[in-house]
């Protein structure tokens, strides 16, 4: 329902927390987004942007979780069925 895309904060302007804006880089396309709801975010962080607002900071460690999970499955498989 809600199209929200991850992008990298490349610059931040404004001091007032409510009007703080960031320029967000999406693979070479840069768009302005409000950083009002992600006060903890710094330049270089990835944020998820929806209708011009950063809604959350991407947790880069947690982002690996899906792949780690697969790795676990893979290891389990190998235990069960040794490679032919």
């Amino acid at each position: 329902m809600c199209l929200a895309i991850p992008g990298k904060v490349v610059s931040i302007s404004g001091d007032d927390p409510l009007t703080r804006m960031g320029r967000i880089d999406f693979s070479g396309v840069v768009k302005q987004a409000s950083l009002a709801y992600v006060p903890e975010v710094n330049i270089g962080d990835y944020v998820i942007v929806h209708v011009g607002f950063a809604l959350s900071k991407v947790d880069e460690d947690e982002a690996q979780k899906v792949f780690q999970y697969l790795k676990q499955i893979g290891e389990l498989d190998e235990l069960k069925e040794p490679a032919p």
């Binding site: 895309i5 999406f26 693979s27 070479g28 396309v29 768009k31 942007v49």
Partner: peptide, 10 residues
């Protein structure tokens, strides 16, 4: 191109 693709995503 990656940037065109990104613009489409946005």
């Amino acid at each position: 191109r990656a940037d065109v693709s990104a613009a489409c995503e946005i």
